[in-house]
Every structure is written in structure tokens, then in C-alpha cells.
Write a protein that binds this DNA or RNA. Structure first.
Length: 695
DNA sequence: CCTGCATGGCTTTTT
DNA sequence: GCCATGCAGG
């Protein structure tokens, strides 16, 4: 049972002396009082308020922390980690689970600042990335070969599409049937909620009631395909992890003995699988779940804030801590935000929190009405200039938030025109760029030749090769390889295989195959970055030169990818991170350290705070989104609006254009968001910026 | 079977 | 005003 992570906790200067193994027990005991001199002494009492202090220093055991927005939830969590360390708990005994990569990074960074303990000494990260680690260690116990690869959302969807096409020829031809995307969502949601597909459809997708019976076989076939190709989709990382824990007592024992303390951030956003995973590992009940039902914004992915309510049933003797003092926002912003929740049709009384403002007064939120997108962007830019130049606000303390990516389009253009540097956590991500995905697929195929999606991607780059030819080539190569007991890549150049290669592709074929072999060779002997380097310099390099006019720029990015790869020691880890870190934004920025304002979706802004926040597109149809309105369920959108508003510390601007220029049929008139209309007008000011002269 | 053109349909949010 | 899918040609 060797883990590549084991060494990390044992040989660093901060490690306390080894402790005798302690029996797992329901913890009524206090912490073992082993002095921890390496971690700097922290005055917990002075650094925290009463509520936070109580939670941070609570006896080990099930803890539920109900923490409102801006009440210092992350602070509580990070200090809890520091407190555990100060009591002699080793970093390797702490498991820290979050939802987004950003949150994980932020948390571990803060712990590092506080205690000096390096982030990589904890097991901390998203459920998915920790699931991947678990599968990497124990996947073979449930029949998952160790070189499995991970499909991103597009690839998974396309595999499902191919599966369904193969199972039932005309399914997608019939327009009344769900398309691959929605179909994937149905299956995914059923897996994440652990509900049978029939129940899932009844509950969440009644429009598919009539064809519900068709879907379970598709799900089964899809699962089979994934196994054949030795690939996992995102949901597998959670489901297989759970299955592993349920099927193998020794694995469960390993995790629960190893992670004597479990902390879960944003517990309101756990879905059934995630909650079950936590419960399985936390047989010792030393688990701290931190959450706020008002900020549950992932229910479309199966998140169920009822998990908070049932936590105490699943972990008897739960101590509940409420943290209700808000240090972040001015009372004006907080009043406004509280009213958003007041308008909720049904509130859970037992979860309700009353946020108290701790700060002095500031300005009321400003509702900004402009003609169109363009004026909206102009307003934001002019206001930012003013804030930065005259009020001395740092650009990095300013954020522009929106419900969905497309709302930010005009904003991006305007910022570029104005020469104002910005970070954007949306749009086409670095790892989603074509050439990046190509080269990753190239390497991924070498690593796992059963991965047909990776194969299709690279094979289709050859002239005259499309999906069908790619499939045929792969099939014949697979057969041949099995027959000859040889590597799949080694048989690609045999005549049998070549008969399936279209004429137009034969010119490229030898160098294509040679490059694959070279990469395979490198992968066996050298660190992963070398294999990437080899791939870039081989056949793909030639292809790139011919296929793209901006060849130089793209090559530059591929070199950056090689640089990224050099941070990883194993191919498995590297390839997984590329899929899972689906974040690393393609900042159009030259200097990454330059002070830049931030553009992000509300989802990605969760947990973060800024001096000044602009929410753009606060109009019905945008926020709440059109879809949510049509489905008659805007409650999640309301929580999202609450999350957006509570990101602001000093100033909050809610902007909307009166005319929709781009979206919809065009020229449509927009109403202010219903969430604005629900709020007493005395709680905000209305601002109508003068029309800008255009010459 | 692949590729190019035209029409229709449409837009969450993240791992 | 965009992208993806559908149809005709090679």
C-alpha cells in the first residue's frame, strides 16, 4: 500500500516526532497534548471572536458550523487547522475537502501563511481531485487499471453520444428526444443524487417522462464503454471512490485511520455521493462541516443543503456552532443582502442565521441603469478609473461579477479597448485551447492507448480522417495488437492497419507513428515533461505549422504547457491535473503579477471578497437566467444573487442594460431583475449615468 | 466517408 | 450576432 504522498509528511522539518498509533474511537477525549514547537505560537483567543473561537477550539467530534456570508468561515476553517496542528495533529492526518480548485488553493495558502506548513503536506483539494488520488492508490481493488485516464466534460458527452448512436441508430435523429448534453445531465444527476434514472427524470426532468425507459440501457452501455477504454468521467471519480469505500473495509479503515480529522468546506453544496463519502471515512466522527444553506448554488449538480440538516442524524452528538457576525461588508450592503433572503418563499427556521454587521457605515448599493451593454461597460470602466486614480483603490480589490459568461463579452472588449488589465476566469481556458488539447490527447493516448477519445482527437488531425476512419483504425490496431501480443502503438505501421488508413493520410502516417513511438519511449524512461516536449517537437509540430497562421504564439503556449508538466513527477498525476484543474485561466495578460481587476462568474467568486463589486447584467432573463425563469425555479438564482452581493466590502454596484443587444432575438427590452424589485427601494440608490458622447 | 456550405437554434453555473 | 448541426458534392 504505497502512496506517493506518504513521504511528504515524514521528512520535513515541521513534522512532529512520530506518535504511537492511536485507536480509532468515538472521541469524547481531549486532544493528546503533545507540544508542537515547530508551528509558531498563535494567540487563538486574540485572533478570533467568541463564536469563531468556540468553533476553532471545540473538542474533536462531529461539528457543524453554520456560518453566514462574510462571517469568517474560511478564517474559522484555517484556524481550526492551525489549532489541530498546535495540538500535535500531523498535517498528514488532516483531510480538507472543498468544491473548487480556487477554494482549495486559497485555504491551503492561508494555512501556510498562518502556520508555515506547506500546502502539499495536507491532503487538501476538491472532492474530485482527492477521489482521483484515492483511485490511484486503490482503484485496482475495484478493477480500475492504474493507467486510467480522465475525460473532460466534452469528451464524456461525446463518448455518450457515440454510445447511444451505436445502441440506437435514430435516437438523436428524433428531435423530440434529448440531445447528448441534456441526456448526459440526466444520467449525471442520477448518479450524483444516487437516485434511479426513472426517479431522477420524474423529479427533475418531467419533460422526458415518455422516453425515460430508454435511458437506463444507455447509461449501462456508456459505463461499459468507459470500462473498455479504461477512462473515467468526473462523476466516476466520486462514485468509484464511494464504491471503493463501501466494498473494501480495509480501504475505509485506511482512510479513517489516516485522516483522523476531516474538514469540509461549503458543506451545503455536497451532493449525496459526496456526503456519503465523508460519512464513510468519518467513522470516528471527527468531522467539521462548515456551511451556509443560503449559499447553496450547486443543486443542478445534485447539491442538497438538506445534508446540513441531516448531518446531526448521521453524526450523533454533533455540536452546532453559529457564526453570525459579519466583518466584511458595510451595514448598507448587508441590509440589502439580508433582504434578498427575506424574499425566499420558505426558509428553514433551524438553519436561519441572523447576520450582524460589525463595520461602520458606508454608501448604499447603487443600482445602475444604462441603455445597453456598451454603456454598462463604459460606466464600469469610468467608475473603476475614478476608484483607482482618485480613491486609491487597488485594481485587484475590484471585481466584475456576472451570472453567465456571455454577459461579460462586451465588458471584455471594452476593457481591452481601454487598455485596462484584467484577469478573467472564464471564456476559453488554457487547457481548453485546441492545440493544448491536441497535444494532451497525443500524450494521453500514448499513456492509455485504450482511450479512444484521445485517439480520435489526434487521428482526425490527419487529412481525410474523420470519426469513422479513426474508429476503424483503432479497432483493427487493437485486434492486431492483441493477436501479436504487442503494444498497440507498435502495430500501427503494419500493413493490416495501414489498409484502413485513408489514402490522403498515408503521407503523414510514418511520421505520425514515429512520433507516437518516440513519445512512448520517452514516457517509459524520462519525467513526464520530456514526453510532452517530445510530442511538441514531433509530427504535431509540423502539423501546427501548417494548420495555424499564429503558429508562433501557439508553439509558445505549448512550451508553457511543457513547463507546467515539469512540475509533476508522474504522468498519471499530470494528466489528471490537466483535466481537474480545468481552471488555470488563459489570462490575456502579459504580466501575471500586475494589478488587474477581476472578471468572474458568481460561482467562481464564492468565498472571495473585494472592496468594490460590480454585478453586471442584473436584469430578468440574465439574472435570474431565462432558463430558470422558464422552469419556474429561481430560488437557486436568488441564493446566487445573495452570494454575489455579499462579496462586496465597501461598494456594491448592480448594473443592468435596458436593451439586450446581443442575446436573444435582439433588441429586446429588459426589466430589472425581480430580485431588485423585491427589495425596498430605500435600501439602494438609483443611478442613471449620463449618456456618453461617442466622438 | 470526408468536406464545404447553409440553415436553424440557442445560450447557465463546475469538476 | 454566434455556433453547431444538417444536407449536398467530391
Amino acid at each position: 500500500m504505497d502512496s506517493p504522498f506518504d513521504s511528504e509528511e515524514t521528512d520535513t522539518p515541521f513534522s512532529p516526532p512520530p506518535q504511537p498509533a492511536q485507536p480509532v474511537r468515538l472521541s469524547t477525549s481531549t486532544f493528546s497534548a503533545i507540544p508542537q514547537s515547530a508551528v509558531p505560537a498563535i494567540d487563538f483567543r486574540a485572533s478570533l471572536n467568541d463564536e469563531q473561537y468556540a468553533a476553532v477550539t471545540a473538542e474533536p467530534g462531529p461539528l457543524l458550523v453554520l456560518a453566514g456570508a462574510g462571517s469568517g468561515k474560511t478564517r474559522t476553517l484555517t484556524y481550526r487547522v492551525a489549532y489541530l496542528l498546535s495540538k500535535g495533529v500531523r498535517p498528514g492526518e488532516i483531510l480538507l475537502l472543498t468544491f473548487t480548485n480556487k477554494a482549495a488553493k486559497e485555504m491551503l495558502h492561508r494555512v501556510n501563511d498562518l502556520t508555515g506548513v506547506e500546502p502539499n503536506r495536507f491532503w487538501g483539494g476538491t472532492f474530485h481531485s482527492i477521489g482521483h488520488r484515492a483511485l490511484r492508490m486503490f482503484g485496482e481493488d475495484i478493477g480500475l487499471p492504474k493507467n486510467f485516464t480522465i475525460l473532460d466534460a466534452d469528451e464524456a458527452e461525446s463518448l455518450l453520444k457515440q454510445t447511444v448512436d451505436a445502441e440506437s441508430k435514430g435516437f438523436f435523429k428524433d428531435k423530440t428526444n434529448p440531445k447528448p448534453g441534456p441526456l448526459f445531465n440526466v444520467i449525471s444527476l442520477s448518479r450524483n443524487t444516487q437516485l434511479p434514472i426513472g426517479d431522477t427524470i420524474e423529479k427533475y426532468f418531467p419533460q422526458y417522462k415518455d422516453i425515460a425507459y430508454l435511458i437506463p440501457p444507455f447509461a449501462v452501455a456508456y459505463e461499459k464503454k468507459k470500462r473498455e477504454q479504461n477512462v473515467c468521467d468526473y462523476d466516476d471519480l466520486l462514485e468509484y471512490w464511494l464504491r471503493l469505500l463501501q466494498k473494501s473495509p480495509s480501504v475505509t479503515q485506511y482512510f479513517s485511520e489516516r485522516f483522523r480529522h476531516i474538514l469540509v468546506d461549503e458543506y451545503q453544496d455536497t451532493n449525496t455521493v459526496q456526503a456519503q463519502i465523508v460519512d464513510c471515512i468519518a467513522t470516528h466522527h471527527r468531522v467539521m462541516a462548515v456551511g451556509d444553506d443560503a449559499q447553496c448554488i450547486y443543486s443542478w449538480r445534485g447539491a442538497d443543503f438538506e445534508n446540513i440538516a441531516t448531518f446531526m442524524d448521521r453524526h450523533p452528538g454533533t455540536a452546532i456552532h453559529r457564526i453570525e457576525t459579519n466583518y466584511r461588508s458595510t451595514p448598507e450592503i448587508l441590509n440589502f443582502a439580508n433582504r434578498i433572503l427575506d424574499a425566499q418563499p420558505h426558509r428553514r427556521a433551524e438553519l436561519a442565521k441572523e447576520l450582524r454587521a460589525a463595520r461602520g457605515h458606508g454608501m448604499r448599493p447603487q443600482v445602475v441603469q444604462t441603455m445597453d451593454d456598451r454603456e454598462q461597460a463604459d460606466f464600469v470602466i469610468r467608475r473603476i478609473r475614478c476608484l483607482v486614480d482618485e480613491d486609491g483603490v487597488s485594481p485587484s480589490e475590484i471585481a466584475v461579477l456576472y451570472r453567465s459568461h456571455f454577459v461579460a463579452m462586451e465588458m471584455q472588449l471594452a476593457l481591452s479597448r481601454a487598455g485596462m488589465p484584467y484577469h478573467i476566469t472564464s471564456g476559453v481556458k488554457f487547457f481548453e485551447r485546441q492545440h493544448i488539447k491536441d497535444i494532451v490527447a497525443f500524450v494521453r493516448f500514448v499513456y492509455n492507448p485504450a482511450d479512444e477519445l484521445a485517439w480520435q482527437r489526434i487521428a482526425c488531425l490527419l487529412p481525410k480522417v474523420g470519426e469513422k476512419s479513426a474508429q476503424k483504425i483503432h479497432a483493427v490496431a487493437r485486434e492486431h495488437a492483441a493477436l501479436m501480443r504487442q503494444d498497440l502503438i507498435a502495430v500501427l505501421e503494419t500493413d493490416d492497419v495501414k489498409t484502413k488508413v485513408p489514402k490522403g493520410a498515408l503521407d503523414d502516417w510514418p511520421s505520425f507513428c514515429a512520433s507516437l513511438s518516440e513519445v512512448a519511449e520517452t514516457m517509459r524512461a524520462a519525467p513526464p515533461a520530456k514526453a510532452f516536449d517530445m510530442a511538441v517537437n514531433g509530427w504535431y509540430g509540423d502539423y501546427l505549422r501548417g494548420a495555424f497562421a499564429d503558429y508562433i504564439d501557439r508553439l509558445e503556449e505549448l512550451k508553457a504547457l511543457v513547463g507546467f508538466a515539469s512540475r509533476y513527477e508522474t504522468m498519471q498525476d499530470l494528466l489528471a491535473q490537466i483535466v481537474l484543474l480545468n481552471g488555470e485561466t488563459s489570462d490575456r495578460q502579459v504580466d501575471p503579477d500586475a494589478e488587474a481587476i477581476k472578471l468572474t462568474t458568481v460561482h467562481q467568486a464564492k468565498g472571495l471578497e473585494y472592496d468594490v463589486v460590480f454585478v453586471i447584467g442584473v436584469a430578468d432573463g440574465y439574472f435570474p437566467g431565462r432558463r430558470a425563469i422558464e422552469d419556474g425555479d429561481v430560488e437557486e438564482e436568488r441564493r446566487l444573487f445573495y452570494v454575489a452581493s455579499t462579496r462586496a466590502k465597501n461598494e456594491l454596484y448592480l448594473c443592468y442594460p435596458k436593451v439586450a443587444t446581443r442575446a436573444g432575438p435582439g433588441g429586446m427590452l429588459l426589466e430589472p431583475s425581480r430580485f431588485l424589485k423585491e427589495i425596498d427601494a430605500s435600501l439602494y440608490d438609483i443611478l442613471k449615468p449620463p449618456r456618453r458622447s461617442y466622438w
